[in-house]
Write a protein that binds this DNA or RNA. Structure first.
Lengths: 242, 242
DNA sequence: TGAATAGTGTCTCTAAGACATTATTAT
DNA sequence: ATAATAATGTCTTAGAGACACTATTCA
């Protein structure tokens, strides 16, 4: 049988119907704590609950493109750090039908995150409480940025968010993801504060500086931060490692 | 609108047709080198090329269950280490139709891997050459276990295999995956040989032993290996960390 | 006893934590 | 000068690499 003949005879429905979606964990830092952007579900199922922004994957669209489109449509964002996390395929994770969802992690610098909360129609920033440490992970909870009790998340989105936190923590000190949470130019203190916010711990200053400067990721700009009432710190720029 | 009404009105085809598959990277150690189990594609598309064993995901089947079923059907294997790797969604990765594939990594101890090559109908072990080091990764090549030139892999399976090697290397020394490549009872030397095979480097013996024994993963069995013509080494058992 | 590998002692070196000290700027 | 934070020096400690040495078993 030729390939053409095979393709003509191939039945796409032989294995039943199943939809593929993406859900995006759009994270940033807010007042020294990790935060995530949620939407309020206005329609059933689970209307009223908070959810991660998401959408179905088009037949002529890659997974990365679908995640980028969701960010564009729901948050007006483009050109931000975006990486695939994990694919969630529990049978009843969505009551509508069988929906398998590819989870993505997107990261924004603090200023852009705050701006997105104002500009993105319906985007609600929520602070993430992470009650665990270590590589085993565990559940996290979310609260409205302006305090208040814990929020309920729709579907399995609490699991997705918990995995996002675990991955982010795990990658933080051996990869360059941390820089995606900072503006183009930043001080070493800001970099440390980002790490401390994500890890939920305080870090030793000299050791942190040594570690960061020993990697060849930081390029001094020669410019110092303006507007301080004390010795102005050097501004650095992230340089992709060779 | 109630949830029931919503579900009744929901159109599963609104976003077009797309199939979901799993592809399994079944790895083991062979003569001190990483190896993978491949199948020869007998039908189009790409008949004749080697491929990872895979299959479509059933509508009432989780992703993990689909990967486990593929291992059962194509290799006669069950109860082995199985973890999700990444989801591949390039538009034209399969010429038949849009097929998104969730890649899984499965690991077998050396003896079980060799046995599977004999028992699994059509399973062909291939040795993996990994020409890179470090966390950036890169392409790998495969050769037939009995030497010979490099083999061509179908679809994007070379990318999937390369990612599997990168992940395995990355997780090896901070997680317990290494033990999935060993029998229930093993010597410290065997454990080191597994690490050396996967990492493609030689390791310092005292440092390796110290590191492994300092984690609380190894439980001495009190039994020593039999059949040696020299001092018989202690056999250890893997104990899940608390 | 010799061969072969198991298993350990120890020195060095690197990197992190802790803490203190010096440096630099605005007011 | 003072206040405030930037930036660094240094001591200690933990862990890895290197290498040699001792231990144990079989033939």
């Amino acid at each position: 049988m030729s390939e053409d003949a095979f393709l003509a005879a191939y039945d796409p429905d032989a294995y039943g119907r199943l939809a593929l979606a993406v859900d995006v964990v759009l994270m940033g830092i807010r007042d020294g704590r990790p935060a995530v952007m949620l939407v309020r579900r206005e329609e059933p199922p689970q209307a009223g609950l908070r959810a991660l922004p998401g959408g179905f994957v088009g037949v002529t669209e890659t997974l990365d493109a679908a995640a980028a489109r969701v960010l564009r449509e729901k948050a007006g964002l483009s050109d931000l750090h975006l990486e695939q996390l994990y694919t969630f395929g529990a049978i009843d994770r969505d009551p509508r039908m069988r929906i398998v969802s590819v989870a993505y992690l997107a990261l924004l610098p603090e200023a852009a995150f705050t701006a997105a909360a104002r500009n993105g129609a319906g985007l609600l920033p929520a602070v993430i409480d992470v009650p665990w440490a270590g590589e085993a992970g565990g559940p996290v909870t979310v609260r409205d940025a302006g305090e208040g009790g814990p929020l309920a998340l729709a579907f399995d989105h609490a699991d997705i968010l918990a995995l996002a936190m675990l991955r982010l923590r795990g990658k933080l000190d051996y990869s360059a993801v941390g820089f995606a949470l900072l503006p183009e130019r930043f001080t070493l203190r800001q970099l440390q504060e980002v790490h401390e916010a994500i890890l939920g711990t305080s870090l030793n200053k000299p050791a942190f500086r040594r570690r960061m400067l020993d990697r060849s990721w930081l390029e001094p700009t020669g410019v110092r931060e303006a507007g301080t009432s004390f010795r102005p710190p050097e501004l650095y720029r992230f340089r992709r490692p060779r």
